[in-house]
Design a protein around this nucleic acid. Structure first.
Length: 920
DNA sequence: ACTCTGCATGTTACA
DNA sequence: GTAACATGCAGAGTA
């Protein structure tokens, strides 16, 4: 398709180019997160189902998890007005946080029925940001300021959130189809609640006079609520699961009218961890399988992180050290004795902890809170019993460390070995009361799916948006069930001793690596590959902006569509080849997931369903049967997967193998001119070069041969490749000329002239360069997201190759280049001279190079040298632009976007009939 | 040569 | 920015 044939060449270029880059950058993360979200896919189900689990878990809890709003802990039942007190250890429940706010005594609650707890629309709303703000602020105020206590309200707000979740739970059951929006709301609510819970927590731990602490939260939350809302709207996965404390807790606590002991009782709402830890290690997620009906049976296995119940400085104990011990485990520890087991803390063994050195580093706060105070580094021997009843004596000591202390338990190797523990396993420390005996338990790490999820979920922290929600939702049904099965497998299966099935193994190292905020951008190699693949696919999905109408630009008798808006991502399709020689395009309906055959030249919008299938009236409704048999469908998908794999492998190869670049690549492309039909012979009719390019496509992308193949182009070569290169360059120069003209105008009117146009040109140059420089089909994927600076390596490799070929060395400092050139000691063209060349008017350039027309180069002119100059020019421009692109790389943290999609319009819409056209 | 001990240092979490 | 923590490392001790 080209201008000669009167068909518009579809390009995405122009002022929207830089915007496109930005959008693509954003999309990288969306895709990346989507990949994970797909793998994690816990969003809708877990959070909703957790609620039931936790409720029951807390019903069974023998520990007071009740929120204490003040010293006395007294409450009035919202129903009967009875005076209640939060009970503590060992007695039965007396009050309940009501969904509609306030509290109720158990009898009232039971009378009214848990599920039918009336809702309060006002509280339940959360429809606006203001609601969130108000409620949260009120909550905090009430909780924190003893002088301004409105006993009912603190819980009210918390319950408002709980209530919201509850109703959502119900909604989910009623209508799963609405889950996207609701999930989002719930996530917001959950997260807000979580923040609130930290307030609760802090208040609870703090004496009355700790108002300064609370003020901080008040400020943070009331001021930040709106922002929070906003951010939460985009960070959902982790938040959803990270707010267990906001589940509808039924606080079965004891001590009806008794006072005291509440100081020992950690607040239930503290289960929701600090706002910072939006994604705590979610032991509860595993429990998500349990619906109300089955909850009771599962209860002893529910691994709930219990805030430490006492100890010096326990309020500083990080949640990651909170013991996640089940009631069953507690029972096993305490046995039949009358002892009370008090979970203290736990720690995931590091490599050094589990190593032969035999030193277990203790969390400072834990050591100081629960172990005997020591003043000398030598410490003292500590007798700890293991779950088998065997006593071990460890040396509890510390090392001075940065004006602090580093506590260790020495001599733990025998114990660890006897437990067969290794790095990643968890040791738990508990205390038997009233003896005060320390007990050491353990949980083995597991590689179960669920645990992987926990790690993954941590990595999802703050990284999703509605986009992801939708994805997650789509996978909810399938993988959600899978998760359930996995969890079911574990459910109720205790391991030996305390080593019960580790429903959660918050392997710190792992979660650190991929889950921490600072490492948000880190992905493992597998993910990276997956992401890269997806990202490459993202290129395929580029579509012209939906609403924007292109302006038609005539360049050398070619009509170009020029868009001001950046492209959008369209729907992925798969191409197949018929045995008869034709091609088909297959798209999957968003609604029914059936695959529909489409004409090959159709570009679908991002959202597409059967009803949009205007090409097949018989199959324009979802109810219509799928054309493909199950086997065909499977084959189709398999082929697509195979193609992906090939592309990945090819990319890997590209990364590790130097390749001819620039003109070498173009030269080799000459071979292909007529002799395509290369390698990727597959039923999927996409070429191996790019899925959107099909057999027959003769665009600059597709006409290039695989790396290293084909003869070099001769100077006089007038093959398609060379001609295309020349045409590209000509187009570039034309645009430059145009810019110059504009610049002259702009000089008279400076405000109207910004760097944007410059960027545009550079982008164009980059785009051209990309096309020129990519000799390998897969390497042509313009955007490569890589980790660990591999992309840099590739760039450098390429640069090195170019240098060998007497081209610009991208590693050289521009000034040095210039100096070198001035010194005449280098055969490289200096940067400045190249820039000068680039800035020459087209006519001058042509004249200087003995050209009369780029469309019809002088026979005597050396094609090679021209092309080299062209490429040098392009390289220079690209290099010149490079510093400005740093944001692209930096935005990605350790992952860099090597190059933006410069060929987006090209590759994204290339059709078999648009060959020999210049997208630039 | 190997292990142990004490400390130093780099990384990460957290405020 | 700082504290906490995981781990490295050098020197001492021991087989």
């Amino acid at each position: 398709m080209n201008g000669d044939e009167g068909v518009h060449e579809r390009i995405v270029w122009g002022n929207g180019f830089d915007q496109m880059e930005e959008r693509l950058e954003v999309e990288i993360w969306r895709v990346r997160d989507a990949v994970r979200s797909v793998r994690v896919n816990l969003v809708p189900s877990i959070s909703l189902r957790l609620r039931a689990v936790f409720r029951s878990a807390y019903e069974q809890s023998t520990y007071c998890d009740t929120y204490h709003s003040n010293e006395s802990g007294w409450r009035d039942c919202s129903s009967c007005g009875k005076r209640l007190h939060c009970g503590c250890i060992a007695s039965k429940s007396l009050l309940e946080l009501l969904d509609n706010g306030g509290i109720g005594c158990i009898s009232c609650v039971r009378r009214s029925g848990l599920a039918s707890t009336p809702t309060d629309e006002k509280i339940n709303g959360f429809a606006t940001r203001n609601n969130v703000t108000e409620v949260r602020s009120a909550s905090v105020d009430n909780n924190m300021d003893a002088d301004n206590v409105d006993v009912g309200r603190p819980l009210q707000s918390g319950n408002a959130e709980v209530n919201e979740q509850n109703s959502l739970l119900q909604s989910q059951r009623d209508d799963k189809n609405e889950s996207v929006g609701k999930i989002k709301r719930e996530q917001i609510v959950a997260a807000v609640g979580e923040v609130g819970s930290s307030s609760f927590s802090n208040f609870n731990h703090s004496p009355i006079g700790s108002s300064h602490f609370s003020k901080r939260y008040i400020n943070k939350e009331s001021v930040g609520a709106r922002d929070l809302y906003d951010s939460l709207a985009q960070t959902c996965l982790s938040i959803t699961l990270g707010a267990p404390g906001n589940t509808n807790l039924t606080l079965d606590h004891s001590g009806t009218i008794e006072g005291g002991e509440h100081s020992r009782a950690p607040p239930s709402l503290e289960q929701g961890q600090r706002s910072r830890q939006l994604m705590p290690k979610p032991p509860k997620m595993n429990s998500g399988i349990v619906h109300d009906a089955t909850t009771k049976e599962m209860l002893p296995q529910i691994r709930v992180a219990r805030p430490p119940v006492e100890g010096r400085g326990r309020n500083q104990l990080l949640p990651r050290y909170w013991p996640r011990i089940t009631d069953q485990e507690l029972q096993q520890i305490s046995g039949d004795s009358n002892s009370t087991i008090v979970p203290l803390f736990e720690k995931v063994l590091s490599a050094s902890d589990a190593g032969r050195i035999g030193r277990l580093v203790l969390p400072k706060a834990c050591a100081e809170a629960y172990f005997p105070p020591i003043s000398q580094p030598e410490g003292l021997p500590l007798k700890i019993q293991d779950v088998k009843g065997k006593d071990w004596v460890f040396q509890f000591r510390f090392w001075p460390n940065n004006n602090s202390r580093m506590y260790v338990l020495e001599g733990v190797t025998p114990c660890i070995q006897s437990m067969q523990l290794q790095a990643g396993d968890t040791v738990t420390f508990s205390r038997l009361d009233p003896e005060g005996k320390l007990v050491m338990g353990f949980r083995k790490a597991s590689s179960c799916t669920t645990c992987s999820y926990s790690v993954l979920l941590q990595s999802m922290k703050g990284s999703t948006d509605l986009h992801i929600n939708a994805l997650s939702e789509s996978f909810h049904a399938v993988d959600g069930d899978l998760s359930w099965r996995n969890i079911d497998r574990h459910g109720g299966r205790p391991n030996e001793g305390l080593a019960l099935q580790p429903l959660l193994v918050p392997e710190k190292k792992r979660s650190r690596n991929i889950g921490s905020k600072s490492k948000r951008l880190l992905i493992d190699s597998e993910d990276a590959l997956e992401l890269k693949l997806t990202w490459e696919e993202a290129q395929d999905l580029l579509r012209p902006p939906p609403s924007a109408k292109p302006s038609i630009v005539m360049i050398e008798d070619h009509e170009f569509e020029e868009y001001e808006e950046p492209p959008v991502f369209g729907k992925k399709t798969i191409f197949t080849a018929r045995s008869s020689g034709g091609q088909d395009q297959w798209a999957q309906c968003d609604n029914c997931s059936k695959w529909r055959r489409l004409p090959v030249d159709v570009l679908l919008p991002p959202k597409w369903s059967c009803i949009d299938n205007a090409w097949d009236p018989k199959r324009c409704v979802c109810s219509a049967a799928e054309e493909l048999s199950p086997m065909d469908r499977e084959n189709l998908l398999k082929l697509d997967r195979d193609l992906k794999k090939r592309r990945i492998m090819a990319n890997q190869k590209l990364m590790h193998e130097p390749e001819p670049s620039g003109l070498d690549a173009l030269a080799t492309a000459a071979v292909l001119g007529e002799g395509r039909g290369d390698s990727g012979a597959t039923c999927v009719a996409t070429t191996t070069k790019h899925p959107r390019h099909r057999p027959g496509c003769t665009c600059i992308v597709c006409i290039q041969p695989p790396s290293g193949k084909g003869p070099k182009h001769k100077p006089t070569c007038t093959c398609t490749v060379c001609m295309t290169v020349k045409r590209r360059f000509k187009t570039l120069m034309m645009r430059k000329k145009k810019r110059q003209t504009e610049a002259e105008v702009a000089q008279r009117n400076p405000p109207g002239w910004g760097p944007k146009d410059e960027v545009e040109v550079d982008s164009a140059a980059r785009g051209a360069l990309l096309a020129l420089d990519s000799s390998d089909a897969e390497g042509r994927q313009a955007i490569v997201l890589e980790s660990g600076g591999q992309s840099n390596a590739v760039s450098i490799d390429k640069a090195s190759e170019m240098n060998k070929a007497g081209k610009i060395d991208l590693n050289c400092h521009p000034d040095r280049d210039d100096q070198d050139a001035q010194a005449g000691g280098s055969d490289r063209m200096s940067m400045m001279s190249l820039l000068q060349v680039a800035s020459l008017p087209l006519e001058t350039y042509l004249k200087q190079n003995g050209l009369t027309s780029l469309a019809a180069p002088e026979p005597q002119a050396s094609s090679t040298s021209q092309a080299q100059q062209q490429q040098q020019l392009l390289v220079v421009e690209s290099e010149e632009k490079a510093p400005d692109e740093s944001h692209l790389a930096s935005a990605g943290g350790e992952h860099e976007i090597t190059t933006p999609i410069a060929t987006g319009g090209d590759e994204g819409s290339c059709r078999p009939d648009n060959a020999q056209t210049d997208p630039v």
